[in-house]
Amino acid sequence: MGQGHDHGVSATASNERKIAIAAVLTGSFMLAEVFGGIVSGSLALIADAGHMLTDFASLLLAWGAIRLSRRPATWKRSYGYDRFSVLAAFVNGLSLFLIAAWIFYEAVKRFREPVEVLGGLMFWVAVAGLAVNIVAFWMLTRGEGSNLNVRAAALHVLGDLLGSVGAIVASIVIMLTGWMPIDPILSVFVTALILRAAYRVVKESASILLESAPEGLEAEKIKAAILEGVPGVTEVRHIHAWSITEERPMLTLEIDAEAGTEHRAMREAVKALLHERFDVDHVTAEIDVTEGQGAGARLGPA
């Protein structure tokens, strides 16, 4: 029951391939960074390795979500599996808050009980990690930037990238001055930067999962546009806007029309207006004519 729709095409082959490559890069380097963090005693490196571990899991989740979203719609799941990618983005965003809580906890412990850090080893491991993260982040941010699932995955990698930068700075300070508190301080600072972006991803994905109206699809604006732009419309009621993914807005509404209105012409006019003004292509509308035309006529999905 695919109904001929090709929604979510931008988040298929291209996104799947680059997320897979980013996952391989991240997973491969993660083990080296864990070893380097343990040997050097650096919380910044261990925190970054923790980021990379969850990044590897989140990238696999994002990759699996894209593959699942490509499955055709069925009678039971008439919208297909696209929303699983939104769920993956939501889980990935929440995981960043858990990582941040762990890093803050470890930082407090380091302030109370300072640990000797090997600045030289920390520096070279962080430089290698930075190179890996730059490549992965560059791949994830090329094109299709509106896909929430890819943005969440890229945000995880950005956290690693900034973590590597923080570890490099901390290692230089340690090598030059021997001041060990710089390690947990920069770990907390980098994590705080990531939390703001993580909040946006969680907020957007939660809004979609709760079927909130997408930004720009306010009921009053839609009603005013149809009343003004489509001849023969006397009232617009029961407007419901939501989205399957951030790329698939949906809209249902009821229209009261003047007697004698040609339903097909009104249908096409409503579709064209909503596409042009609000960039919505999937519309289900019902036309009710109360004067002499019997039961209302239902307009199918646009």
Score class of each variant (00 low, 15 high):
194 I>F: 03
161 L>A: 10
146 S>Y: 06
200 R>L: 10
248 R>V: 12
226 I>D: 04
129 G>P: 02
168 I>R: 03
166 G>T: 02
208 I>N: 00
210 L>C: 08
223 K>T: 12
219 A>W: 06
193 L>R: 04
159 G>N: 04
161 L>K: 05
146 S>R: 13
227 L>I: 14
241 A>S: 14
143 G>Q: 09
167 A>D: 04
244 I>Y: 01
157 V>C: 06
168 I>D: 01
153 A>Q: 02
145 G>F: 13
248 R>H: 12
153 A>D: 03
127 V>H: 10
195 L>A: 10
220 E>H: 10
173 V>I: 13
200 R>Q: 11
205 S>H: 02
202 V>F: 04
246 E>I: 03
136 A>N: 02
247 E>P: 05
215 E>R: 12
246 E>H: 15
218 E>V: 07
209 L>Y: 15
219 A>P: 07
142 R>P: 04
173 V>F: 07
192 A>F: 10
158 L>N: 06
148 L>M: 07
144 E>S: 12
151 R>Q: 13
227 L>W: 11
168 I>N: 01
186 L>N: 08
228 E>K: 14
188 V>R: 01
238 H>L: 14
229 G>F: 04
201 V>P: 00
229 G>E: 11
175 M>W: 05
137 F>V: 14
214 P>H: 02
152 A>Y: 00
234 T>V: 14
164 S>R: 05
134 I>C: 09
177 T>Q: 11
129 G>E: 03
137 F>A: 12
168 I>E: 02
180 M>Y: 11
218 E>Q: 15
